[in-house]
Computed example of a mutant assay.
Amino acid sequence: MSWMIAPLAVAVISIGAMVLAGRSMARQIAAQATTEESRMLVSTTTMIKRLEGLLGTGDLSEWEKSFVRSLVDVQKAGKVTQLTGAQVEKLDELYGRHFA
């Protein structure tokens, strides 16, 4: 009978460790999803408008100011949907750096 206790104890400990690891992973995934969702809920137009507000500050480099101005022009022309993948990635990066 005592020979069954050791494997049973190992099984219980293993299951407990898996449960704790699973809970930790679930928390990490939930936190990441919340962050990504909150960023995804902000429209491209809103991101551009908020970044436009930084143009009068020293928070953006000259290149970034030029980039944001070009995005503002695109937005005013109603062509936000025509941004390239690289432009959207840079927009997302800038927005995340300043407003996330």
Rank of each mutant, 00 (worst) to 15 (best):
D73P: 03
Q75L: 08
M4T: 07
M40D: 15
T45Y: 07
R50Q: 15
V12P: 06
L91F: 00
I29G: 10
G16Q: 09
K65A: 05
M4L: 13
I5F: 08
G96E: 07
K65D: 05
K90L: 05
V68G: 01
S66L: 09
S2Q: 12
S43G: 15
T81R: 10
A30R: 13
G58M: 05
S66A: 08
A31Y: 07
G96C: 04
L54S: 04
L94H: 03
L41E: 12
S24F: 14
P7N: 05
E36Q: 15
M4Y: 14
G96W: 01
E64D: 06
A17F: 12
S24T: 09
A30M: 13
A11E: 12
V42L: 06
A26Y: 12
I13L: 13
T46R: 10
R50T: 01
L51H: 00
S24V: 14
L91P: 00
L91S: 00
K65I: 03
A26Q: 15
L71R: 00
L54A: 03
V42I: 14
D92P: 01
T81Y: 09
E36K: 08
A30P: 01
A6C: 04
A100R: 08
V74D: 01
K79D: 06
L55V: 06
I5P: 01
T34A: 14
R97S: 05
S2F: 10
S61F: 03
Q75I: 00
M18Y: 11
D59A: 11
Q82C: 04
T45Q: 14
V72A: 03
S70T: 06
S43E: 08
G53T: 08
A33C: 05
S14C: 12
T44S: 11
E37I: 11
S66W: 04
S43P: 04
G56L: 11
A33T: 15
M25E: 15
L71I: 05
S24A: 15
V80H: 09
S61M: 01
M4V: 12
E64K: 00
V68K: 01
A86C: 00
L41W: 08
